[in-house]
Amino acid sequence: MDAEQGSASEPQFAVTVDDRGDVAVVQMSGELDVYTAPALRETLTEQISGSANRVVVDLTGLSFMDSTGLGVLLGTRKAAVAVSKSLAVVSVEGPVMRLISITGLEHVLQVFATVDEAVKPD
């Protein structure tokens, strides 16, 4: 499922899902903020309630993420825990990773450097 959101003044934000059966890899590009977060939230909610047991969220395509994005990740983590599914995040050094580390979220989110590493079961 593809979701695109953006306006004349904001760059495009796009989310794609790579369904690999037991693992769903959600990838995105653009800026994740208060305007585009709903699209991501919708996609992640769908995947958590879908057939995959592990959802991998690849943030490497993002050029920007603020606390709204964090809120979406945390909300997804909570939903995953509630249905005994696992959530993993892919992120590399950069502003997005900095946000994750400043908030201490690397302590509660599984963060990997690549999608390949992230899709392996716990």
Binding site: S101, T103, G104, L105, E106, H107, V108
Partner: peptide
């Protein structure tokens, strides 16, 4: 070392 934000894991 960054410490976790509030509201997730009180045992942190």
């Amino acid at each position: 070392q960054s410490e976790l934000l509030l509201g997730l894991e009180p045992s942190f």
